[in-house]
């Protein structure tokens, strides 16, 4: 019954059989290709997972160092946030997006670009200038780590999605499409066999019928001849004695 559900609605013809067989072949190739893709993605995914973990741990440390160096600056130079905000004119760090192709999946990657010019290099001229520069360096490093983590994380999410989709496709082909096609082929084959058998039987039957039909005709003819021969000119009325009719 489920087998019946799992086959396609085709007429069991030879044409349909060839078509279905072709499709089965296609599905098998597709399945193996998708499985390969999934494996490739998984390898990449694992590598990224490892890197993400490392980057996250590193980020924790780097951010801590950066926050601490800001505390140092506050100790030496007081609150400089406003001066820095006001004197910042051009971005020193820019993030550029690039794309990478991993077995048919485009992964966005972010790259950091650092402007060489040094803005607000005079901040803290009177006191704490060196600490401020150092703090700036530490934060630049922290941002580098963050950007790295961000591109890894994006790649991670996208790969995760793609792997899930691929998995679903692989499974669908494996558990739905292939059995369905196989069933269809089986069904068509069985139907064709059945038809063959029917045909054969019918032929047989006809043959036997034909044989039987020929025999009886001969018989009747033979019989007729025989009776005529026997009767000769016999009177029809003398065919037999009728039973007396008694009312």
């Amino acid at each position: 019954m489920s087998e019946n559900n799992q086959r396609e609605a085709v007429f069991p013809t030879r044409m349909a059989l060839t078509n279905t067989k072709n499709r089965l072949k296609g599905a098998q190739t597709g399945h193996s290709l998708l499985a390969k893709k999934r494996d490739a993605l998984m390898i990449r995914f694992r590598a990224i997972l490892k890197k993400v973990e490392e980057a996250k741990l590193k980020m924790g440390k780097v951010m801590q160092v950066a926050a601490f160096s800001l505390a140092e600056v506050n100790y030496v130079a007081g609150d400089i946030s406003y001066q820095v905000q006001e004197s910042a004119k051009r971005p020193q760090l820019t993030v550029k997006a690039k794309q990478e192709n991993v077995s048919g999946v485009t992964l966005p990657g972010f790259e950091i670009e650092r402007e060489q010019s040094n803005e607000f290099s005079l901040t803290g001229l009177g006191r704490g200038g060196q600490k401020i520069q150092k703090c700036k360096e530490t934060y630049a490093k922290a941002i580098e780590t963050l950007v790295e983590l961000a591109s890894l994380q994006t790649a991670f999410m996208i790969l995760d999605d793609v792997i899930r989709v691929t998995n679903r496709r692989v499974n669908a082909i494996e558990h739905v499409v292939l059995p369905k096609l196989e069933n269809t082929i089986k069904y068509i084959n069985s139907e064709l066999d059945e038809m063959d058998r029917e045909e054969f039987f019918r032929l047989k039957k006809i043959q036997s019928k034909k044989k039987k039909g020929g025999d009886s005709e001969q018989d009747t003819i033979d019989q007729g001849e025989y009776t005529q021969d026997q009767a000769g000119g016999a009177d029809i009325l003398d065919q037999g004695k009728d039973e007396d009719v008694i009312f």
Binding site: S121, L122, L125, G126, R127, G128, Q130
Partner: peptide, 14 residues
């Protein structure tokens, strides 16, 4: 201040 200004002005446009 003098020492700090000197030290902090290395490699700047000052």
């Amino acid at each position: 201040r003098s020492i700090n200004i000197t030290l902090n002005s290395f490699n700047t446009e000052l």
